[in-house]
């Protein structure tokens, strides 16, 4: 949240856009630590289906979330072409498995349109608005509630 507040004062935001399936999403660039290639993850017992498992990120245990499955879509079949966006979410670091990183966008708050009211968990918990860029629709995602339990803790 702090980075959002910071950007509000400066007016512009830098976002990283990525592709999952045929949809495009973007997250605040300040929350992204690094982007790396896919490595096989160690599955976790009793984890939700979108949790692919954990990988070793220079000694830290990094949980990997299949972003596609997290949105309720068909789970990805990870290949070497997939990338992991390592992002800071609150005090934790998570990896998001996405198809590809497509762009870096600089937008102002005025460019962000409110999320259309759609009855879906995704729209409620993750989507923070939509952007129209060159005729494409890019959905702005807030990662704070990428783990559902974080949302509850915060509530």
């Amino acid at each position: 949240m702090t980075y959002a507040a910071k950007n509000l004062t400066t007016g512009g935001r830098e976002l990283i856009a990525f592709r999952v399936g045929d949809q495009e999403f973007c997250v605040n660039i300040m929350s992204v630590r690094e982007i790396r290639g896919w490595t096989p993850a160690t599955p976790m017992p009793h984890a939700p289906s979108y949790m692919l498992g954990v990988i070793n990120l220079r000694g830290a245990v990094l949980p990997i979330i299949d972003f596609c499955a997290r949105l309720g879509m068909k789970p990805a079949e990870p290949t070497v072409r997939h990338v992991i966006i390592v992002a800071q979410v609150n005090s934790q670091v998570v990896g998001l498995l996405v198809d590809a990183v497509s762009d870096i966008l600089t937008v102002s708050d005025a460019d962000i349109q409110p999320t259309p009211e759609i009855a879906s968990e995704f729209a409620r918990s993750l989507a923070r608005g939509v952007l129209a860029i060159d005729g494409r629709m890019i959905c702005l995602v807030e990662l704070d509630s990428i783990f559902p339990h974080h949302e509850r803790e915060a509530a």
Binding site: T39, T42, M44, H46, A47, V54, V61, Q92, V93, V94
Partner: peptide, 19 residues
């Protein structure tokens, strides 16, 4: 970075770099 997993005490990193 994650959460407590029942039945699992912790993780480690093996020689092949996997968790």
């Amino acid at each position: 970075n994650y959460t407590h997993v029942p039945g699992i005490a912790a993780a480690t990193i093996l020689g092949d770099g996997r968790v």
